Amino acid sequence: MSSIASQVILHPVTSQSLKVLSTTIGRDKLYRAIQYFARFFAWSLLARGYKIQAARWDALKSHLALGRKLLRLGKFLENAQAALRAISAPGETGERITAIGRQLGYFGYLSLDNIGWAHSIKFYNLAPSTAQKINKRAMQFWFTGIVFSIVHGLLKAGRLANEVKQLQGQAWSEKSAEVEREHKLRSLQTAREDVRYQFILDLLDVWIPATNIGLVNLNDGILGIFGFVTSLMALRQQWLAAAGRK
């Protein structure tokens, strides 16, 4: 029995899981996945008339959302740094502008999110109307950041596709040059896969703030599924990073 327990506890998958969950981002993505699953499941139970059970899952969703706000305290500074780096970074003008817009959108969202957290734990009391305005403004910044990210992905995907076509259309006489070209093509293909992955993630996530600010009217079931899927996608990225494959 002890041998089986040792194999489970010391298994590489267990070690890698602990490595992912030892990071703030890893824990946040796991909590987010549970939060959005709870949002979907509470909606599903309520739709079938199970009010008591739905209230339990709704409470889990709310407490995880509040806990995740604590994990994000001060994170807006990372976006501020990223925006400043993007200003001076080389590259296509359109990609740089959208990268800056994305980081500024997330900066505004997370800054206001911190204020909302302080109000929610009654550390700093705001008038109900003011708290509502801050929450809506935070959602608007989040929506703006994702839209910039989507546009950035489209621009970058187009540039990478053109670079791949140019490399594939070139004739290489020397073997060393051919090897170099294959290496560049693999790098470009990897970059394109990363862009596509983030693009899909953004296309699903954008509906959450869009609903919160009233642009669309999707129910909690759909938003819960979208949030759950994107959380697992982001958690997968952390898993691969912990494995040293990204």
Score class of each variant (00 low, 15 high):
244 G>V: 02
91 G>W: 10
15 S>C: 09
112 L>F: 00
152 H>N: 13
48 R>Y: 08
179 V>S: 06
120 S>V: 08
153 G>F: 03
75 K>S: 01
86 A>Q: 08
39 R>G: 03
33 A>W: 03
168 Q>M: 15
49 G>N: 03
213 I>W: 08
165 K>L: 15
173 S>C: 04
236 R>D: 04
135 N>C: 04
170 Q>E: 15
136 K>Q: 14
65 A>N: 09
237 Q>E: 02
31 Y>L: 04
11 H>K: 09
138 A>F: 02
14 T>V: 02
81 Q>M: 13
205 D>C: 07
245 R>H: 11
212 N>S: 12
154 L>S: 01
138 A>V: 03
217 N>P: 10
59 A>H: 15
21 L>Q: 03
241 A>P: 00
135 N>P: 04
154 L>H: 03
212 N>F: 15
182 E>G: 06
72 R>I: 01
198 Q>R: 14
50 Y>F: 00
219 N>C: 10
126 L>Y: 03
238 Q>L: 10
198 Q>S: 14
236 R>W: 13
16 Q>I: 12
183 H>K: 15
13 V>N: 10
19 K>V: 01
92 E>L: 14
100 I>T: 14
239 W>N: 06
56 R>I: 10
18 L>A: 10
157 A>D: 11
85 R>G: 05
168 Q>P: 04
117 W>Y: 15
70 L>C: 10
79 N>A: 10
129 S>Q: 13
128 P>Q: 04
90 P>F: 07
82 A>P: 08
52 I>M: 09
112 L>S: 07
162 N>Y: 12
242 A>H: 01
101 G>I: 15
170 Q>F: 09
184 K>H: 12
42 A>R: 04
165 K>M: 13
129 S>K: 06
78 E>P: 00
71 L>F: 11
133 K>R: 14
53 Q>S: 10
106 Y>G: 02
234 A>K: 01
122 K>N: 08
17 S>P: 00
219 N>L: 02
230 T>N: 01
87 I>F: 06
36 Y>A: 07
109 Y>Q: 07
142 W>H: 01
216 V>Y: 09
133 K>P: 00
89 A>D: 13
234 A>R: 04
87 I>H: 07
161 A>P: 04
164 V>K: 11
172 W>D: 14
86 A>H: 13
117 W>C: 07
156 K>T: 10
204 L>E: 04
74 G>S: 04
187 S>A: 11
163 E>F: 11
145 G>H: 13
